[in-house]
Every structure is written in structure tokens, then in C-alpha cells.
Write a protein that binds this DNA or RNA. Sequence first.
DNA 1: ACCCAGGTGGCCC
DNA 2: GGGCCACATGGG
Length: 230
Amino acid sequence: MEVDDLYRRLDAHYSVEDWWPAESPWEIMVGAILVQQTNWESVAGVLEALRSRGLLDVDAIDELPQEELEAILRPTGFFRQKAKNIKAMASYLRAHHRSDPMHLLCQDTEAARRELLSLPGIGNETADVILLFAGGKPCFIAAAYVSRVLGRTGMLDSGDYQEVKGLMESCLEPDPAKYARFYALLVQHARTTCRSRPKCDACVLSSECAFSSGRGTAGSRPLRRTSARR
DNA sequence: ACCCAGGTGGCCC
DNA sequence: GGGCCACATGGG
């Protein structure tokens, strides 16, 4: 099975509309920090709380006392770290990008990525979430879920973030909308199969819905780079 | 009472 | 470069 086949099969099986609802790039950046190791429902509640207080704003967050932000973030867990990290992001944008996230994100992708990674609380995955969903960049998000599903299809056998990201980007057209949808589909699939019903992999991933045998999907072959993109 | 969630950073070897 | 651990709350 090729990567595009996997995409089509998942697409036919799940609906992932409105995967990352937000009214602004800054709201996506804040959400990207908040959703770390947390479910989206908690995040959505906190984003609403921030919105209703007029706090979905770079300068407002920069000026808000840390303890007040912590209190609002509490339901998403890791609230002290997240408050610190979100404030650091606001402070950085204000100092270096006129409080405008797009001023950072509209640069060359690699430059923007390096800048995001230099901020506390933003690692590979969060940087790519921001670049893709807020910046519209063709940055594939190689989340742990993604590596897990790809591993089970037999298409790849690595958990290394850069490795998986590079491989996927070399196999797909650099289409941000498709990357976003693919990511959402992979996460959705991982969530509904990994725990409760691991066997359903076969249903979705193999063409005949045959619960063939133990591991992987029959006919899958390892990913190969098809171009020299990086 | 467990286990898990749309990760990251720090420390250790 | 990998393997642990803290970070914290909420839901199944």
C-alpha cells in the first residue's frame, strides 16, 4: 500500500471536519501549547474562557499576571508550565514581531521553525502544528500516533521524529490542506484503534477488510523517498 | 484504582 | 543518541 492509498482509505472511513477550530493564528498557537498531553474538550473550554475575558490577544497575555493565567489554564493540566510557555510566546512575539504571529510565520519555513523551537514548551510537534495550522506551511506533523499507525501498516519502522517527517514530506505533494487532513485522520484512526479495538486496523487499512494475520497490512511496502525535498 | 490524553525539557548513562 | 522522570487535571 502506498501513502496515498492509506490517506484515501482513512478519508473514506473517518470524518475530521473542523479539526482545529480557531479564529486567529494566535488562538492556534495558544491551543497548540494547551493541547499537549490533554484532550481537546478541556482545551476548548479554556480557550472560551480566555475569549470571554478578551485574553486571546498577544499583548493582553503578555500583560496578564502569571498566577491569573495559571488559574484559567488549570483544567488542561500542566497549567504552571503552560502558563509560563504561553507568556513566553506572547512576550517574544511582542518584542520581535510587533505582536503579530504571522510576521513570524510568513518567513521561510525553516527559519520560522527554528524560531519556534527556540521558545520554551515548543518542541518538534508543537512547532509543526503551528507552522501547518496557523502558518499554512506544508509541514507534516510526525506525532507519536502517526509513527505508530504508519508502523503498523508496515510502511515504516521508525519512531524518530525527523525521520518520519522527512519521509512523509518526500512522499506527498506539499499541500498544507492535505497534510492537515492526513494528520487529523491518522490521529483519529490511532485513537479509535490503538486501545479499544486494535484489530480494526485491518478493516480500515486493507482493501478487502480481511483480518488477514497478526501484524501489518498485507501488501504494504516500506516508504521510499521519491524526491529530494527536505 | 487504574490508565490515558492531539508533548516538552532536564538529567543520566 | 536513547531511556526515565516530572509536569497536573479530567474522563473512562
